[in-house]
Design a binder for these strands. Structure first.
Length: 358
DNA sequence: TAGGCCATCTGGTCCT
DNA sequence: AGGACCAGATGGCCTA
């Protein structure tokens, strides 16, 4: 089984990784073309900021042409008295021409640095598109993108090693390890939403849900929309807690409580500061709120209806706070219309899935 | 208003 | 020498 796994899946994963690298590289070139040159005029031709004068004086050691000879003579003559001669490169007087050249060098260096950072950001954007949760409007921060990418790679590696599908909870835990609360909310929401799409079509046995485009199995947990008005944070009770406990308005909570048996998920790898908990609909940036109510209603009807099952031992609460047990309140829909798993981009999921469902 | 995130500038260091 | 890379500083924008 494992050999089959590696023979069938690994080439696809490698191919996708190579494609992504190619994308990144080609995009980097494109960015260079598309980059507007306006910054150059705006910034570089401005008066130099603080430090520029220092830069000019320090860079005065640069040599080149015409007026340099005169400057060196001047420096040497200053030591005519009993003062010890200074060693090292002689300080050269800043002539107007030299200042101009120094400025030009700085301008060019600034432009290169901008280009470099734009390329880096472009690569990060490409990375955002291939990690499990991608949103056009709610971009993961740079650091969170890198963390999620790392977790994603580790998770895929784990799947390949084990040769079996993890359950969705394990998968979410792997992905969200070390992520900040808002990102955890977002990723868990994405995954949960994706799960729900397939949960609407129960299997024949009624006990196990299939996820045609996900590499993990789904426990016959209870998936329900419920009003989560009471405090859900239960320290020590064992929870991957994606609750937005500080948010008082209409919002969502994604709370996983795996039977209260596992230790509390506490993001041990998260080195940075923890952002305040954020709800999945209202807590994110205003960009998310660009979505229309129509869109929200549509997605609500697509993803949040008819999802109630009966087993409460493990529950993934991911419902609008205004709806208990699956009640529909379109005003509380998280704007997931632009948040999606990247399955439609033929991610490794697809290939893995082909294996897992064979 | 504080904190997070980001873009940009800048100077230092290393490499080719 | 010039470019790439890096890290610090700074200021703007946004959100809670």
């Amino acid at each position: 089984m494992l050999s089959r796994l590696f023979s069938e899946v690994l080439p696809d994963v490698q191919r996708l990784a190579a494609e992504w690298v190619d994308d990144t590289e080609s995009d980097g070139g494109k960015v260079k073309e598309e980059r507007e040159p306006c910054h150059l005029e705006e910034n570089d031709l401005d008066e130099p900021r603080e430090g520029s004068s220092r830069a000019e004086s320090e860079m005065a050691g640069d040599d080149d042409d015409d007026d340099d000879d005169v400057d060196e003579e001047e420096c040497g003559d200053e030591n005519g008295g009993d003062k010890p001669k200074k060693r090292g490169p002689k300080k050269r007087k800043m002539t107007a021409a030299r200042v101009e050249r120094s400025k030009m060098r700085r301008v060019k260096a600034n432009a290169r640095e901008r280009t470099r950072m734009h390329d880096l950001n472009s690569a990060l954007d490409n990375l955002r598109k291939v990690v499990p949760c991608y949103s056009k409007t709610q971009k993961l921060s740079k650091i969170e993108t890198l963390r999620l990418a790392k977790n994603y790679i580790l998770a895929l590696g784990e799947i390949l090693r084990n040769g079996k599908r993890p359950d969705v909870v394990t998968y979410v835990q792997m992905l969200c390890k070390g992520l900040s609360q808002p990102t955890t909310n977002l990723v868990a929401g994405c995954l949960q939403l994706n799960t729900r799409n397939f949960l609407t079509e129960p299997c024949a046995d009624g006990a196990r849900f299939h996820m045609p485009s996900s590499p993990f199995s789904v426990h016959p947990y209870s998936y329900r929309c419920s009003r989560l008005s009471s405090p859900h944070y239960q320290p020590g009770a064992g929870a991957l807690n994606m609750r937005a406990h500080s948010y008082s308005g209409p919002g969502y909570e994604a709370v996983y409580m795996p039977g209260g048996t596992s230790p509390e998920y506490n993001s041990p790898d998260y080195e940075g500061q923890h952002s305040p908990p954020v709800c999945l609909n209202g807590g994110m940036s205003g960009k998310q709120q660009e979505s229309s109510d129509t869109d929200r209603s549509f997605h609500y009807s697509m993803h949040y209806s008819g999802l109630t099952t009966s087993r409460p031992s493990h529950s993934l609460h991911f419902g609008p706070s205004g709806a208990r047990s699956g009640g529909a309140h379109s005003e509380n829909i998280p704007p997931f219309h632009d948040v999606h798993l990247h399955h439609d981009r033929a991610p490794p999921y697809e290939d893995l899935n082909a294996f897992f469902h064979n």
